[in-house]
Nucleic acid binder design. Structure first.
Lengths: 343, 343
DNA sequence: AGTAAATAGTTAACCGTTTAACTGGAGAGA
DNA sequence: TCTCTCCAGTTAAACGGTTAACTATTTACT
């Protein structure tokens, strides 16, 4: 490799000034066609590649987009655990970002302060916040000038930022209505957290609405929270249902992961699904169609969610629009074998 | 927010030169205790944060570590699909990297040329290559001066680079021996690709070795390849086994995802597991313990794999050792309900 | 007392680009 | 002919840090 070659090497080789090289490379029309030709061949011959760090410093633009995850304990592991969700979203984000020549920097937010510091010092052009963060962070974020796109945030922040989500309320409504239509009345709702998880809250609202429409009074005794959306927690909750809530005959879980854990527990105790219990999940992870029985669920297109979010942030960076973007993607009820008419 | 404040603002405010501020902030002992005090309070008062882009340019070190994935089609989606594996590894990597003050930049390699260009222009300090890449890339990579750590690569490159893997051969051996000990003789091996996937090749060698040790002659008719490690491909292969290979009574699949897909297909056709078929997977993804029956598998600690890989690259960057690191982590046989004595 | 070495700081070049401001010459219009 | 504009470049100052080399004191040693 030898030494890194710089724009001045190219300039010398082409017999012009560094500025001219820069103009040509940035497509600024300030150089005659013949010198442009000379410069371009020099670039080729020397195999010149601009140093992006220097470009960042000079242009005050890093061409990097950051993705933040909320960290509860120290690592991303809890977030990714059992969860195709974030991986799929990152895939969508990365796809768009790379196509536009940006790089993707990912970081867990250990503390709001760290997070903001990171954004400032790295000169990150735009930000994607996936999920729900400490409230303090949102307030402090307002001081940032960089475009920020929130994915699945609290309702109260939706109007202050670009915001992408799916129609969680509609999802909750579809799932519950499906169960109601099958004749179920004792329908449990299982979620991560009704207050701290914005998506769960909206799904609950849809659940409640569907019940009311069917003339069923929602009861808090049918609502269950777990501290994290995982198989294990679903499994434990399934056992709890068997012990303490024998009246329940149907479950709408706020994630497929939870639903599958619940299903496992019920089956282990000899319950038949969908004969004894009907179960609906949310997300449509791949495994849901492979479980026994296959899981009825609300499908959301997470890859697309990532694509939309990334596109928004890039547009905001490049000022193609100045108004806030609020996108609510649709969801779809996928009926499989885990739900059936109440006996 | 107003204007970004620079090191010169701090210097002015503390009545010293920018150099002194820099020395203090970099822990270079060249400033008296009392001026150091003044400088530090100035930093506090002005809320100064060094611009990392400028630091990168000046120090010729970006404090960023890149993670590359092999892209087959245009997006990461195929890689992450059904696959807890990469997410978990990223979690481990991010955990270590953040602790050491580095940032994590992720990128799919669309082409070897793009990939190398990216590394050079971004001034990435160190690189993690996850999985198997086009051979050309490895050759060209040698021209890079940045430390590179390969995770799960082809055998032929192992000695030229830092390399982290698990003992895939031992895994294949343990899985197969387990089946042999249960009395099985007709044991299929199902993998992604024996040539293009280095891990599968090693797992196959372990499989072969176990058979030979048991006095069973390995037969190519018991070896099956699929073009991608997914539920769907496992499912399709399961059906194929039922049709064309009625002699087979046990399956060792090179990933849990494949194993679970195969299991689903067999069960759908009325086969009982483990009575009719014994099945062993590889990885121990969460779902494996929740499947019915729960899946016997070879566990590898992927988070730890990420931790070790990230630690290696950081050590290499910081020159704590100059010899190549070759780490082979151990695997463990987890016996569950998908395997039983041959009838 | 005289020299050497350590201390505490400053200056200015440098990292590799970008870009506003300048220059000198050619062509057009009055 | 004289100005005005346009063209095709160049120069040099940013961008925001780092750090080698220098200066001016003070301390230590012979």
């Amino acid at each position: 490799m030898g030494e890194k070659i710089t724009i001045r090497d190219v300039a010398k080789h082409a017999g012009v000034s560094a500025a001219s090289v820069s103009y040509v490379l940035n497509g600024i029309n300030k150089v005659s066609d013949e010198t442009k030709e000379r410069i371009l061949t020099a670039v080729k011959e020397l195999n010149y590649e601009p140093n992006l760090t220097a470009v960042s410093l000079s242009k005050q633009k890093s061409n990097m987009i950051g993705v933040m995850f909320p960290l509860t304990d120290g690592s991303l592991s809890t977030i990714f655990k059992d969860n195709h969700y974030y991986s799929e979203m990152i895939s969508g984000i990365e796809y768009v970002i790379r196509k536009h020549g940006y790089d993707l920097v990912i970081s867990g937010a250990s503390s709001p302060a760290d997070c903001l510091k990171w954004i400032r010092t790295r000169n990150i052009d735009g930000l994607l916040f996936l999920g729900a963060f400490p409230h303090r962070l949102y307030e402090e974020m307002k001081a940032l000038s960089n475009p920020i796109v929130l994915v699945d945030t609290y309702e109260r922040y939706e109007r202050d930022y670009h915001h992408i989500s799916v129609d969680d309320e509609q999802g909750g409504y579809l799932a519950t209505t499906h169960l109601v239509n099958l004749g179920h009345k004792e329908i449990a709702f299982v979620a991560h957290h009704l207050v701290n998880s914005p998506v769960d809250k909206k799904r609950y609202i849809g659940y409640e609405k569907a019940l009311k429409e069917a003339g069923i009074t929602p009861s808090k005794t049918f609502v269950f929270e777990v501290n994290e959306s995982s198989f294990d927690n679903g499994y434990n909750l399934g056992n709890k249902l068997l012990q303490d809530h024998k009246d329940i005959r149907a479950v709408f879980a706020s994630s497929d992961t939870l639903a599958l854990g619940i299903m496992k527990a019920l089956q282990e105790k000899g319950k038949k699904i969908p004969q004894d219990y009907s179960i609906v999940g949310f997300d449509d992870i791949t495994f849901s169609s492979y479980a026994s029985p296959s899981l009825t669920t609300i499908r959301q297109d997470v890859f697309n969610k990532g694509v939309v979010a990334a596109t928004s942030v890039i547009q905001a960076i490049e000022h193609r629009f100045s108004t806030l973007q609020h996108v609510k993607l649709s969801v779809e009820l996928i009926i499989r074998d885990s739900t059936a008419k109440r006996w």
